[in-house]
Design a protein around this nucleic acid. Structure first.
Lengths: 149, 149
DNA sequence: TATTGTTATACTCTATAACTATA
DNA sequence: TATAGTTATAGAGTATAACAATA
């Protein structure tokens, strides 16, 4: 059926989108790789949170989250406070240095995308964002379903 | 301006789409990681080709391509023939074993996507493919432009 | 000299499993 | 016992640079 060809093509595009991600990663500061940038960006957007919540937003294992967080904490971009309500948890919070770093990241990202997406309309960018968000949800929901207990 | 927020969101979606790729990678056979699967799929789609052409389609450095190709060649899934027209080059060609491996990959990929994309219409999948393809072109073109000499 | 491809090296990202501390 | 988080380890993917063979 026709869906089969669509699936193959989608798999191919997913495989090849790595080149776009690498292009974006190349403009990052040397001590702020993609994993660190993602941590900072999510904390800026959603505010302070616990490790487990951040791991969920990053869509990676908490062990991976822990390493990324340690990296940005070592550089003073975030602080880890024990959660008074549950001392096993740690609350992550941006520092002023972290916000400065985010500002730098935003400048670079915006410059790059303004160049690469010069021929795109706002609507087209929005459409792509909407579809990619839905794609992640379609996969993420199934994973949640798969681990019910 | 509004575009700034769109750019941030696009960067976030690109970062998070890795979870989808990892979900797809998990269903692959143990001796056929994503890099190998990409090599086989591209040879099946575009027919025999040289290393440099494959590297371009994979959108990775030729050194990376060389390693992926060595992996699939070691398993007998492709053959490397010297190019009579330019003996520096090697022509890559699928074997029957390679085609069998591709058939297996297609079965698994189709199963997974049929499950994950159950709520998607053909049109929506097509739209996403179209936009992702265009995204890659927008980035790829700029890279080509950047390396003119 | 320039180009095609290979190999050595190093770095990032990731998951699994073992572990500590707390609930 | 169960959960939040850390760390050790291993594996995949990638790029850069040095290299070999050929154009």
């Amino acid at each position: 059926m026709a869906a089969q060809r669509h699936y193959d093509e989608l798999a191919r595009q997913l495989s090849a989108v790595g080149a776009v991600k690498r292009d974006m990663a190349r403009i990052l500061p040397h001590d702020c790789p993609a994993g660190s940038a993602a941590v900072l960006t999510l904390l800026a957007r959603y505010g302070e949170m616990r490790m487990s919540r951040l791991a969920e937003l990053l869509a990676v294992d908490m062990s991976v989250t822990s390493r990324h967080v340690a990296h940005v904490a070592d550089r003073g971009w975030i602080e880890r406070h024990p959660d008074p309500a549950d001392r096993r948890s740690r609350i992550l919070r941006l520092t002023d240095e972290g916000r400065a770093q985010i500002a730098e990241l935003n400048v670079r990202t915006t410059q790059l995308l303004a160049d690469r997406l010069a021929g795109w309309s706002d609507d087209e960018v929005s459409q792509l964002i909407t579809l990619m968000t839905r794609l992640r949800e379609s996969f993420g929901d199934c994973r949640t379903t798969r681990t019910p207990a």
